[in-house]
């Protein structure tokens, strides 16, 4: 490894450590004693392979969770967080871990998530209005088009400026591009 590459690598490690530190500080995961109460009350855990106790353990150990699909099976019901006897903010930890996975660009984005983010950016709503519902609204005496941001050009323009500034769509696009690059790399091998 060249000296330059080694410096780069070290910088990356430091960044990752910082991120983990932040997650731990903000969600108290260092207090976890692995009792498993979180997993016992997890509705998604009964129906899929997500184990909150395990996710917290891996995060605790500094393991990389970027490719774990189960990270995305949590419904954020907060049962675990409410019941944790040590006061670990388990659900918050899952959200931090997701944010980190997205930033690392390794998550297999479900298509509908990307649709929702694009729709929020372009139309101001995650679930936009359809012509069918527009008609029903007017039949039952509601304004045909709701009084909202989506139907006010000026407000929508400002909103798009704000969301572009925040860069959530760029994050998704970068992650998708990186994923594609990796998949192509694997094919070459």
């Amino acid at each position: 490894m060249s000296q330059e590459a080694a410096v780069e690598e070290k910088k990356k490690d430091e960044y990752e450590l910082d991120e983990f530190q932040k997650i731990m500080d903000q969600s108290n995961i260092l207090k976890c004693v692995q009792c498993g109460k979180c997993t016992a009350g997890c509705p998604a855990g009964r129906e899929s392979r997500i184990r909150i106790r395990e996710l917290i353990h891996l995060a605790h150990e500094g393991k990389d969770l970027k490719d774990a699909p189960e990270l995305w099976y949590c419904t954020t019901c907060y049962n675990c967080q409410e019941r944790c006897p040590k006061g670990v903010d388990t659900t918050e930890a899952v959200i931090f871990l997701r944010n980190r996975a997205v930033r690392k660009g390794h998550h297999n984005f479900p298509d509908l998530h990307v649709t929702a983010i694009t729709s929020l950016r372009d139309q101001g709503d995650g679930f936009p209005l359809s012509p069918e519902v527009e008609k029903i609204r007017s039949v039952i005496g509601l304004p045909r088009k709701p009084i909202d941001l989506a139907h006010d050009e000026e407000f929508l323009k400002d909103f798009q400026k704000l969301i572009d500034e925040l860069g959530i769509l760029d994050l998704v696009k970068e992650a998708q591009a990186q994923k594609k690059e990796e998949e192509e790399g694997e094919e070459d091998e």
């Binding site: 959200i95 929020l120 941001l149």
Partner: peptide, 16 residues
Amino acid sequence: KYSCCPAPGVFRGYDR
């Protein structure tokens, strides 16, 4: 003139 809240499931998971 509201936008989506935005929905916690997707948007908070991607970027808090």
